[in-house]
């Protein structure tokens, strides 16, 4: 409650409803990574806003989980750039490998899949976010399986590009800027 009050205090009086997002986040971190209905009702009460309004916000953002998720929560981006780079195949591969559909959790509680909107890493599309944090990038139907198996075995695979790219460097390695730099007389480093 103290933390909640701290969030509410950031907003002018009468505009306390603005604190709905941090409060939802708080509820999620305090409750095993998901927000139960009772929490939304309570937030509505604290902020004096209709519960449907809390529900609207909670359902709009894919970062809020309204159901318990598996140990590994895979958030698969299916927005246009990822989709153009083959996210549909990646999704299919995951579904086949885990035996679940988008939005479901495996029986052993290890994996959950949900589709999300753009994760802001389109340069390395297609992209999966793991437990709301690390991104696995440059996925293909093949290397995504390796990632999944890695996660399953308990050894967390290295996040970032799965094709060995350094951050978002061009696929052919560092090229154009290099040449340009050389032309400009910069010494090779």
């Amino acid at each position: 409650m103290k933390k909640a009050e701290a969030h509410i205090a950031k907003y002018p009086k009468g505009k306390q409803a603005s604190a709905v997002m941090p409060l939802l986040d708080l509820a999620q971190t305090q409750h095993d990574g998901w927000i139960p209905e009772a929490a939304m009702e309570e937030i509505g009460r604290i902020l004096d806003m209709p519960r449907i309004k809390v529900f609207e916000v909670a359902t709009f953002y894919t970062m809020y989980n309204l159901q318990p998720k598996g140990e590994h929560h895979l958030q698969l981006c299916t927005t246009t750039p990822c989709w153009l780079s083959g996210s549909a195949e990646v999704v299919k591969a995951c579904e086949k490998h885990l035996g679940i559909k988008m939005g479901e959790t495996t029986a052993d509680g290890l994996f959950s899949m949900s589709d999300v909107e753009c994760l802001g890493a389109c340069v390395n599309a297609p992209v999966i976010q793991h437990n709301g944090d690390d991104l696995y990038e440059d996925l293909t139907p093949k290397n995504v399986i390796e990632v999944l198996d890695g996660l399953k075995s308990g050894k967390k695979p290295k996040h970032g590009s799965q094709t060995g790219r350094t951050t978002s460097m061009g696929v052919k390695g560092a090229t154009c800027l290099h040449e340009l730099a050389e032309k400009a007389g910069v010494k090779k480093c």
């Binding site: 209709p50 449907i52 309004k53 529900f55 709009f60 894919t62």
Partner: peptide
């Protein structure tokens, strides 16, 4: 305040709280 806009994008729909 019983009706609201739930979800987003392709999944957006008009719904009630539960």
């Amino acid at each position: 305040n019983e009706l609201g806009v739930i979800g987003r994008g392709e999944h957006l729909e008009i719904g009630t709280y539960v």
